[in-house]
Design a protein around this nucleic acid. Structure first.
Length: 693
DNA sequence: GAGTTTGAAACT
DNA sequence: CAGTTTCAAACTC
């Protein structure tokens, strides 16, 4: 990795000056949730796309782009009705965060002494913006430099701040400074308003909660709002990637449009959710590519949701839950998974389910009921899905509850000695807390023992960082696409570690490969492999076809939605309700995959077997098998091939199943760590590059 | 439902 | 790293 350019990180004094500014002091004092989220977000992208020292300066970047983002978005959020948020926040105290922010806003106003009107803190942001509309554009224009690639914006940033400071240091505060102070105040208040609006949006309509989630997508795309803003100014276009801008436009517009459409759906159209699906489809060609990568998860889930909806007659809850869960990627990742249990949390109250999730593990053991906003969003208004209040007697609602109940019932364990704190426990391995249906004894895998769970999990991950990673990864040409190749090689999938079957001939669910519905590879140490999904030697056991086709078909159909499957996640009900494409990235809490939710892109694209469901499962089997032939004989992923890497595997060692965290040279390592790692690495290119072209 | 088989996970 | 033990799911009856 390149040594960071010193010139990019030297202006620490300027930076500290910058961070000492009232704005950032205030921002730092804001909700820790927001702060943490920002950092995470930043880290994710720093480590992913930029790989630059920018990650050293998360706060300014995040803060700035947050503000600038808001400037672009405010016309969405600060509608006249929403602009009343502060008052409501004061009166109803509906949102602690909102009122808290409001209080701080007041304090901040006093501190600055710039807003002399006592009632100003209660003024609507619309009013504020009307006072000096130019301010809203003036400062962001300065901030725009911050929103560019961090590689070259730090100096600019420092320079800007220096200039600003010089102006401030003048005998008389310049108009700019006054304006800036005023702007800061307004930004602070708008920020608070935005929170309030978000809460109110959530409260009023759960269907709008993904608006907030998308806003965090925008958060992550630091440059874009200012880019758009600049475009409107017709000025500096240097960072104006049209695709990105278009993407952001879509992002910004998306919530509004869909909120409206949700409203339409609420107005009584029973097919509202279907409409929503349809309406979401027409994306401009330009943004489509970007969306396909940046928002791929969401859209992908949407697609899956559509397919499921087709089957479920546009089951609204299904689809919207999928979106909701996908949104969590951006809200919460990285960290312990908000996966299935998050979904269950959503409907826990409806269905009287008790399964919960160690979702907040990374956030320091926050109790279930005190999770970050994402979870609050997910779990609140239990009778509300997608902004539509379910008629509790409606078939739709009933179907939804049935699904949830099924899904809850499906994941249960029977552990007796492991206390459900080992990977033996399917619940634990899947990142789920045990629930009542579990027949486990002395179970510690419960939210009340969250600390124990956390610690145990941490230990297991320290021993094997990929312990909670998906065990089966579908390798497609998604990476190849990103590498500039459009190989049409069909989907393939492999158990990362391979099985070690001796007696089951890989024809029973003892075999993890078979269980996951994937063929064996040379990574497997199995003996007498007859895996009907694909034999280790790449062959296809025609003899066993007749006997195993049914089992195979059943197996596949059970996993009809599993794109990435891990042990204990193959339950059909889970798949129906929550395709694993939206599940696994959360469930895997390792440090790699959480950053790469888009690694699923490739999985989705080329997974006809899974997507087509059981009806096609038998026919897809040969396809699948043909894929196996397309895979390197030794199971070496295409990436390695393309990189000219030669992997020397020792599939014979049963200990290969262990994954070491110690890095080895990929070309020489025969450890499963590398095998696992390479599977993840090949997903990295799928992540959209956020760096300016 | 009890008992057996199986292979992953954990341990030494 | 290899061998062994533990474990719980899968399977059989």
């Amino acid at each position: 990795m390149d040594t960071p350019d010193k010139t990019q990180i030297t202006p620490t004094s300027d930076l500290s000056k910058f961070e000492d500014s009232p704005v950032f002091k205030y921002i730092d004092s804001l909700s820790p949730i927001e702060l943490a989220k920002s950092k995470q977000t930043d880290n994710a992208f720093s480590s992913l796309a930029f790989l630059s020292p920018s990650s050293l300066f998360p706060s300014p970047q995040i803060s700035i782009h947050r503000e600038s983002r808001f400037l672009v978005k405010r016309h969405h959020f600060l509608s006249p009705s929403n602009s009343k948020a502060p008052q409501r926040g004061h009166e109803s105290n509906a949102s602690k965060g909102a009122s808290k922010a409001d209080e701080r806003s007041n304090l901040y106003d006093e501190h600055l002494g710039c807003l002399k009107n006592d009632c100003l803190s209660k003024r609507t942001s619309s009013d504020l913006l009307n006072v000096q509309p130019d301010l809203a554009t003036e400062f962001p224009r300065t901030l725009k430099y911050d929103c560019r690639s961090p590689d070259d914006n730090i100096e600019l940033h420092a320079e800007i701040l220096k200039n600003t400071s010089m102006e401030v240091a003048g005998d008389e505060r310049s108009r700019f400074q006054r304006n800036r102070d005023g702007w800061e105040n307004r930004q602070v208040q708008e920020r608070d308003l935005r929170k309030i609006c978000r809460f109110q949006h959530i409260e009023k309509s759960a269907g709008c909660d993904w608006v907030a989630a998308l806003s965090d997508v925008a958060d992550m795309l630091t440059m874009n709002s200012s880019v758009i803003h600049e475009n409107t100014d017709g000025q500096d276009q240097r960072a104006a990637d049209p695709g990105t801008a278009s993407f952001m436009s879509t992002i910004m517009q998306f919530p509004l449009d869909n909120a409206n459409k949700l409203d339409i759906g609420e107005s009584g159209d029973p097919s509202g959710s279907c409409k929503q699906n349809e309406l979401a489809e027409p994306v401009t060609d330009q943004t489509q590519n970007i969306l396909s990568t940046c928002l791929l998860d969401k859209l992908v889930v949407r697609d899956l949701g559509l397919k499921k909806d087709d089957k479920e007659n546009c089951n609204r809850s299904n689809h919207q839950v999928s979106i909701r869960r996908r949104c969590l990627v951006f809200e919460k990742s990285p960290g312990f998974g908000l996966h299935l249990n998050s979904l269950l949390n959503i409907t826990k109250d409806q269905s009287h389910l008790s399964k919960s999730t160690p979702s907040s593990m990374d956030s320091g053991g926050v109790p279930d009921d005190k999770r970050a906003a994402v979870t609050e969003k997910s779990s609140e208004t239990p009778a509300t899905f997608g902004g539509n209040e379910f008629d509790h007697n409606s078939p739709e609602k009933k179907r939804h509850v049935d699904l949830v109940e099924e899904s809850a019932a499906c994941k249960r364990c029977n552990c007796k000695r492991s206390k459900c704190l080992k990977l033996y426990c399917d619940c634990f391995a899947a990142g789920l807390y045990c629930i009542e249906p579990c027949a486990c004894q002395d179970c510690f895998n419960k939210s009340i023992h969250e600390n124990v769970v956390l610690e145990t999990r941490r230990q297991i991950e320290s021993r094997n960082p990929l312990a909670f990673a998906p065990k089966v990864v579908r390798n497609t040409d998604g990476v190849l696409e990103s590498l500039g190749e459009t190989n049409k090689t069909p989907a393939s999938a492999r158990h990362k570690r391979g099985c070690n079957c001796k007696r089951s001939s890989c024809l029973k669910k003892y075999c993890e490969c078979f269980q996951a519905g994937v063929g064996c590879s040379l990574s497997c140490r199995c003996e007498g492999c007859k895996n009907s999904f694909g034999r280790k030697d790449g062959g296809y056991d025609s003899e066993s076809d007749g006997d195993n086709l049914e089992a195979c078909e059943r197996n596949v159909s059970e996993k009809n939605s599993d794109i990435v499957i891990s042990k204990g996640q193959e339950n059909p009900h889970l798949s129906v309700l929550s395709p694993d494409i939206s599940r696994r990235p959360f469930a895997y809490t390792g440090k790699l995959a959480t950053f790469f939710p888009h690694s699923l892109k490739s999985s989705l694209q080329l997974c006809p077997t899974q997507e087509q469901g059981s009806s096609d499962s038998s026919s897809c089997q040969p396809k699948f098998d043909s894929n196996l032939h397309g895979i390197p004989e030794n199971g070496t992923p295409e990436l390695a091939k393309h990189k000219g890497l030669t992997l020397v595997l020792k599939p014979s060692s049963p200990n290969c199943k262990r994954v070491s965290s110690a890095p080895k040279h990929p070309c020489t390592s025969s450890s499963p760590a590398w095998r696992s790692r390479k599977l993840i690495l090949r997903s990295i290119p799928s992540f959209p590059s956020l760096a300016p072209p």
